[in-house]
Amino acid sequence: MIQTFAFYLFAVLMIASAVLVITARNPVHSVLWLILAFFNAAGLMVLVGAEFIAMLLVIVYVGAVAVLFLFVVMMLDIDFAELRAGFIRNFPLGIAIALVLLAELVLGIGAYRAGEIVLGTPTGAAAPLIGAGNTESLGALLYSKYLFLFEATGLVLLVAMVGAIVLTLRERDGAHRGHQNIGKQVRRKPDEATVMKRPTIGEGIDL
């Protein structure tokens, strides 16, 4: 009983907040609704017994990705009139993307129904996993059967990371403005930085 109640609670909240992500006027509100949607997705994961995935969803998406979204969106200068003006112009493009997504969804469910794939079955019964715990079974699969794919994913992410660093790296000319040499700062002694002066009254100091 309580599982059913929890499922409908999470599912309804998730769909409602997903709708609010796209209907909210304010982008910051959109991101906050998105976070709520992630949360409820994690709740659904817990309900199907995938607690490791649920925790990863919260740590990675809510804890890191959404924070960066919020970081960027907060700094936007929001102009509501401009946002609404773009709506009509982009409407056909939006419909096209929605149709593509719908087609993919239908195809995906069709393919899933059509026959068994390696990890799951249409009835929802998962393929037998190694060990008892969630974490161990995932680890055992990732580091044995899917080792190559796992490492390849790592490489793809590494390339993305290097790309992001290269894109934002600027060669600074001249005096390296903004560069801090921590070692030099730590080595500095009081007598290199300060001078004691005893000025006579009525005269200034030459620095």
Binding site: E51, M55, I59
Partner: peptide, 21 residues
């Protein structure tokens, strides 16, 4: 729970939201 430490990591990563909001 099995994933207690991950739960703590997940929850503590949420504490930034109060401040950002």
């Amino acid at each position: 729970i099995n994933v207690g430490l991950l739960y703590i990591l997940a929850i503590s990563s949420l504490s930034v939201y109060g401040i950002v909001m």
